[in-house]
Design a binder for these strands. Sequence first.
DNA 1: CAGGATCCCCACAGATACTG
DNA 2: CAGTATCTGTGGGGATCCTG
Lengths: 117, 117
Amino acid sequence: MECPTSAIPFRIGDKWTAMVVLCLEDGPRRFTELRAALPRVTAKVLTETLRAMERDGFARRTDHGGNPPHVEYALTPLGRSLLALVDAVREWTARHLDEVLAHRAADSAVPRRDTAL
Amino acid sequence: MECPTSAIPFRIGDKWTAMVVLCLEDGPRRFTELRAALPRVTAKVLTETLRAMERDGFARRTDHGGNPPHVEYALTPLGRSLLALVDAVREWTARHLDEVLAHRAADSAVPRRDTAL
DNA sequence: CAGGATCCCCACAGATACTG
DNA sequence: CAGTATCTGTGGGGATCCTG
């Protein structure tokens, strides 16, 4: 249970999409800002996540050009529509996660399988 | 887009957990009933999914013994609490999926990557 | 009927190194 | 700064066959 995402029984799109959505909730962010906010995500994976989000219309990439480069990512309205879902998931997790964990611990006869949850 | 689940940008627990939750919504079901309802899931995977759901306290397995065997699976209250979430996801999908697909099609410059969504 | 046992594959993700 | 390129592995999920 080292990785916090492994304790969340839900996934939206790619593994990190939900986290990125949350990071963009309060407005546009630069690539490096996202990296800092998500230290567990490598640049490659973050890039892939953002590309997928772009492709699906969840996020918009804006290249402000110049040197050094300046790129910003922002949620589209469609991306914002995910926030409600993410919040519902968070609320569920806050409310029931310990119940799940307790049940797992009790049920330790079952050999570990470490699912996404 | 052959597999319907590949069009759903959300996952709960294992890949098929959400579907199983829905199949159990209206009451207990036998293993074979679940198999029939979920033709795309192999027995092995369904078993794994159900074991994980048991382990997490989402479902309860009841062996009525006898021969031929008779086993039933039912949602626990915790498992039922997932229904609201699953419904929220379904509603989101019903409302926005075509938007996502349209955006993808438009954006066909981006090479396919076939994410979970 | 309700599965267990095996074998296999590849998509996801991580590490590391390099660049306009 | 904002990525790309490359290599690698791992485990979730599928196919197939077998059994109490």
